[in-house]
């Protein structure tokens, strides 16, 4: 599809046009170095140049607290499953978060499909925003190769000085562009600039670690018994922050929430974390991951080994949120480096 350009001063007009047709979520400023995706009421709230937000946009695909069905037990076990969602646009999604959504798509849209997820997925449009420089020292998108998108968006925006370049990937993306009249077709000069910009980016987004992507599978092949997990667990507080902010963590719990009359209520799913001590407990009280080291290790293996076996891809997008939010300063890059170095040590 033919790409388009938009003058920067017209960007607010485009956002307003989007807001007339959709609910628009965008990164907004919460503090000095803290941003969050939120529904906006004014284009001025949009903060395109953000470091990864506190929570990734997975919260719109898999909400923290999502009703699966409503029940009514006044006359037997009656229920109705449903999804409540408005058509919406998420604006300004970094390529790491797009990669995260692609991972979740794989998990939730494989058979047996999760139709709650699918319904949300079908109503959400994505407008990505290209990172032209590293956000901070926590990110590892250079290692994970997620700094340039590989699909997964409707439109992808790139800053080109006085213009934004809009790469249009879907018909829905074209539809959004048609809502606003200020676009110009992208000429060959702009296309060339984009190409140059992307090739320059490769020099800027270098691997942040001494580990290469290609050797990660072998590191995690033998790394299960490494002492690194005990060292990491000595710091870990099992708070579950890392799993909450991770764009590819999707574990959940299913609970019933009765109303005060006890006859009616909702069955909901809420985010859960494999870092919680009770996560792998069964009815008799047996816990299959009682030790903190087992749980920290489980999380790392759920990013770098198990999904590779199951879905054929890494479930780390290099966004750096887990390291940024960790109260105990456990750093993902350091942990992987240490794991590599621990080869042969006891």
């Amino acid at each position: 599809m033919k790409d388009v350009l938009l003058k920067k001063e017209l960007f607010d007009g485009f956002v307003e046009a989007l807001m007339n047709s959709y609910k628009v979520a965008a990164p907004t400023r919460r503090g000095d170095k803290s941003f969050a995706f939120d529904f906006i009421t004014n284009p001025s709230e949009v903060c395109l140049d953000h470091i990864p937000t506190i929570l990734p946009p997975k919260k719109y695909f898999l909400p923290q607290h999502e009703t699966l069905l409503e029940y009514d037990t006044t006359e037997g076990q009656n229920m109705q499953a449903f999804v409540e969602i408005e058509p919406m646009v998420i604006l300004g999604v970094h390529s790491c978060d797009i990669a995260g959504i692609q991972c979740l798509n794989h998990v939730f849209m494989d058979r047996p499909k999760d139709y709650h997820y699918q319904a949300r997925h079908d109503k959400i449009l994505l407008i990505g925003y290209e990172c032209l420089r590293k956000c901070d020292q926590y990110a590892s998108c250079g290692l994970m190769q997620t700094h340039t998108p590989t699909g997964g968006y409707d439109i992808f925006m790139t800053d080109m000085g006085d213009h934004y370049y809009f790469s249009i990937n879907t018909f829905a993306g074209k539809g959004m562009v048609q809502l606003f009249e200020g676009f110009e077709p992208a000429d060959t000069v702009a296309e060339k600039t984009l190409k140059k910009l992307r090739s320059d980016k490769k020099k800027l987004f270098k691997n942040e670690t001494d580990v290469s992507l290609a050797e990660i599978p072998s590191i995690f092949e033998w790394g299960f018994d490494s002492h690194v997990w005990d060292r990491t667990a000595e710091k870990c507080l099992s708070c579950g922050n890392c799993t909450n902010v991770c764009p590819t963590c999707y574990c959940f719990d299913v609970n019933d929430e009765p109303e005060l009359n006890l006859a009616k209520g909702r069955r909901v799913r809420v985010w859960d974390s494999c870092q919680n001590e009770t996560f792998a407990i069964i009815a008799g009280g047996e816990n299959f991951r009682p030790k903190r080291a087992q749980r920290t290790r489980h999380r790392f293996f759920r990013k770098f080994k198990y999904p590779v076996m199951r879905y054929g891809k890494f479930f780390c997008t290099g966004c750096g949120r887990c390291s940024r939010q960790c109260m105990a300063s456990i750093n993902l890059k350091e942990t992987i480096s240490n794991l590599k170095r621990s080869w042969g040590e006891i």
Binding site: L68, M79, A81, V83, I85, K113, A119
Partner: peptide, 11 residues
């Protein structure tokens, strides 16, 4: 918008 589901797996 409330979209009713018939085969979500949780019925």
């Amino acid at each position: 918008m409330r979209i009713p589901l018939k085969k979500s797996g949780y019925e």
